[in-house]
Simulated scan of single mutants.
Amino acid sequence: MGLHAALAVHPDSGMGAAARIAGTVAHRLRRHVDRLDLLAANTVEHYRALLAESRAAGLDVLVVVGGDGAAHQAVQFCAGTDIALGVVPAGTGNDLARALGMPADPLTAVDAVVAGLRQGRTHRIDLGRAGDTWFSTVLCAGFDAAVNERANRWRYPRGPRRYDLAILAELASFRSREVCIRTEAGVHELRATLVAVGNTAWYGGGVPICPDARPDDGVFDVTVVGQATRRELIRMLPSLRSGRHLDHPAVTTLRAREVSLSGIGWPAYADGEPLGTLPVSVNCVPRALAVLG
């Protein structure tokens, strides 16, 4: 049996960008696979049903065209299996594609996916797991999760600018809170502004909140911003895009395989998707996902 691939397109990703390039992506993929299933869905339930049909037919590779929300759903499907995932960035944040070293231009990224298919080039990366939910990039709680929640309610502007504006809006109302961070190395209780648990470095459309995180080292990098005033946060914001926020005296970093966060009322997000509120416990699962490239 030859190579069986599926192309998952989320038409709403990137304000329709995914839908606009879907035909071109499919055309390029067809030349290098024996079977290509086209999966287009705007609901998670429909998407999962289509994926289940492809898996039952012997799926080898899933290529997803979309943003981090689309990639997150694909990760839920491919995690813990031998089905390789290819990511074509066509969304707002594209942080998983960035961590995988994919070109920012989606059509150039297709060429990279095709090269991986042609050469049979895959490798495995770690994933985080929170209960039954897998995540590939960053789990965040506190200020950054509140920003994510606000940005998700907006349709405009597109791209990283949306997150920048959501940060400014959230600054007006957010307050630091008591949080307890438990890892295999010990317990940290403090008043904090945010906690980010990074399997990879970036979230929020290219913010390197955990700049040293690597998805193949078997551990999380944890960035903790302690109690900070609104003025201190404003001063810290420019350093986030460069990773220099780690030098701020309010910032602490940890490395851990298992992390439990507890506190009152803090929202939690993983891969930009809501996980509810604290408490939440996560563990790093080495080599849980096969990726093309």
Rank of each mutant, 00 (worst) to 15 (best):
V65F: 14
R20F: 05
S54N: 05
R153W: 03
I21W: 05
R121Q: 06
L3F: 08
A56I: 12
H27I: 05
E189H: 12
I125G: 10
P249N: 07
M15K: 13
T183Q: 01
I21T: 03
D68I: 09
C140M: 12
R28W: 00
A90R: 10
A185G: 07
T253E: 02
P160G: 00
L39N: 03
A56Q: 14
R55G: 07
P103G: 10
F143D: 03
T252Y: 00
I167D: 09
A5R: 00
V87W: 05
V64L: 01
Q76W: 06
I167Y: 03
A141Q: 00
V285F: 07
A166Y: 06
N152V: 02
R55M: 10
V63T: 03
A52E: 14
W266P: 06
L168F: 13
V113E: 03
H27L: 08
V61D: 02
G86Q: 06
A250V: 12
T133I: 11
G93P: 02
D221R: 12
G101D: 01
V65S: 12
R230E: 04
A74P: 09
Q119W: 02
R28C: 01
R28Q: 15
M1D: 00
R55C: 11
A99R: 12
G120W: 08
P160C: 01
Y163V: 07
G80S: 11
L29C: 04
D247N: 02
E258L: 09
M102Q: 15
I125T: 12
A213V: 10
L3D: 00
A115D: 15
V138H: 05
Q76E: 11
L240G: 08
A192C: 09
V195N: 04
N199L: 04
G93K: 09
P274W: 10
A166E: 03
G14K: 11
P274T: 12
Y156K: 15
A49C: 07
R55K: 14
T24E: 15
H188Y: 13
L3A: 01
S54W: 07
D111C: 06
R30I: 08
T223R: 04
M15A: 14
L29K: 05
G16A: 03
V63N: 05
L100I: 10
A115L: 11
L240Q: 00
T43C: 03
G69S: 12
D216M: 09
P106G: 09
V87N: 00
A192D: 07
M15C: 12
L240V: 01
L59A: 10
W266Y: 03
G58W: 09
C140W: 01
T92V: 08
T122P: 02
N148A: 13
A22R: 10
L168K: 03
A18F: 11
